[in-house]
Amino acid sequence: MKKAFVAALLILTAMPLLIGVAALPPHGDPDTPVHTHISARYLEEGREEAGADNIVTGVLLNYRGLDTAGEVTVIFTALMAGLAVLISHKKQPEGDAAYDAAEAAAEDAPVRAPVSPVVSFVVRLLAPFIALFAVYVIVNGHVTPGGGFQGGAILGALFIALTIVLGRERTRTLMPRLAQPWMQGAALLTFVGVGIVGGALTGYFLGFPADASLHLARKLMMLVLEAGIGLGGAAVFATLFLQMEAE
């Protein structure tokens, strides 16, 4: 009875959805509004106007920069939400000395599962190459697919792999306590910083100078943004992992 009810409900919901979707403009047709309206300008002028060979990056950072600023804020919100729910009574003391003491105590406890020497060796061997690739993805985001989000995810994954293999005592030097909150918020901080610089140059918040003379400044602003997004994303991954591991 209940199953029949659920099935009927699903069919009833699916019908209007399918009718609506069926009437959408056909996929891949070059004459549909998706291709003829704002995208047309992005594709024709985007490279010159927005200053990125990769049009997607041009849209993300330049035309719709505020959206991307909002998205990095969503990631930061997820981190804050995770920390507000995960941190427990037992640890996280205040002050550097207490923090170190607690970390030392945590190191003594043999909680870590043993890692196979093969895995350990391979991760350590590949680590510099992974890091290099992450930097490449971040720096080259305005030419080829990629950018801060993707590069940051690679960096974060590398941090997690290293922590599993080497233990948190080795990797935590990568995220000193006083630098942690700065790294976690790096993405939005760079957006606001670059936004204000852009505002000073163009009169609009998050504006990028379009003059040929300021071409280099524009490239540099985009690079800083990508780096900030990458660092912030990696720090969010790393913090959430460390927090969950500590519980």
């Binding site: 959206d67 909002g70 969503v74 919100t77 997820a78 804050m80 939400a81 507000a84 729910v85």
Partner: peptide, 23 residues
């Protein structure tokens, strides 16, 4: 005044609201 921007802000406020309820 932008639909996708509206969604981005909707996510920021919803996500934080869920966590605040759990707090």
């Amino acid at each position: 005044g932008d639909l996708f921007n509206l969604f981005v802000f909707l996510e920021i406020l919803s996500l934080s609201a869920y966590a605040l309820v759990a707090f």
